[in-house]
Design a protein around this nucleic acid. Structure first.
Lengths: 129, 129
DNA sequence: CGGTATCCAATCTGATACTG
DNA sequence: CAGTATCAGATTGGATACCG
């Protein structure tokens, strides 16, 4: 520890932007929700069918949290029957490069650091073409 | 949703590299620990003093988890009295760009998306000079 | 179809005291 | 100085049933 790169003198755990942002992504299904919304807007029923294992209650709750935190926007169309759609907010779209980087490093991790054969290329895969 | 960018067909929540990696950072003090170790190796007592609010028990536990997950390495020097040091592993060092990006976007978030005046520039600040 | 209420089990973290 | 054991409180997410 010669020349410190990070000034952490007043760093309390409660006022750390990194932790604060990560806490907004904390939730068992939020990452997967965001990946789906990166593909475009979705209706709740779609997400419930696409995300294997999630219950409606928790899906609703996590969407509401994402909306309240300004990562996701909800649109209600006054049709008959009414229609609901969720999409990424402008800020939510700013998360894409981070999610991509997390995915790349995460894949490296499960391959070379703590190998897990059950992780395949099909998992949360980003289309390259 | 015209041309999907992410192939999520087989995406179960359990085999998502992003979530897997993030789960390794999950822990109330791990981010702050990593920031400190980005500055160089530290002894447990140092970290306990630097990280305001952490108890020795939880600090020990989170360091052990970080070590078991391959993000941090522990060195025990057979001196008298014995000395313990923690430092980032090679993979842990690969997290630096992600932590930087998370910090930048997080700071934007607390400033412009969900403003929080209690977050100041002093928090987890990266030295620019 | 979309959202909610209630109950419950698992997990995480803080407090405290103890070991080497 | 470094690490551990035990207990209690809070939070999280799952199961189920119900409302508009």
């Amino acid at each position: 520890m010669t020349t410190p790169k990070y000034e952490l003198a007043g760093a309390t755990n409660e006022t750390c932007p990194t932790r604060h942002l990560l806490s907004r992504l904390d939730g068992k299904w939020k990452i997967l929700i965001l990946y789906h919304l990166l593909n475009g807007e979705h209706r709740p029923g779609q997400l419930e069918r696409l995300i294997e294992g999630v219950t409606r209650q928790v899906l609703t709750q996590q969407l509401k949290e994402l909306e309240g935190d300004g990562l996701v926007e909800k649109a209600i169309f006054a049709e008959m029957p009414p229609r609901v759609e969720y999409r990424l907010s402008a800020f939510g779209q700013r998360l894409e490069p981070i999610l991509d980087q997390l995915y790349d490093v995460g894949r490296y991790y499960v391959r070379h650091v703590r190998p897990r054969p059950d992780f395949t290329d099909a998992d949360c895969r980003k289309l390259v073409g």
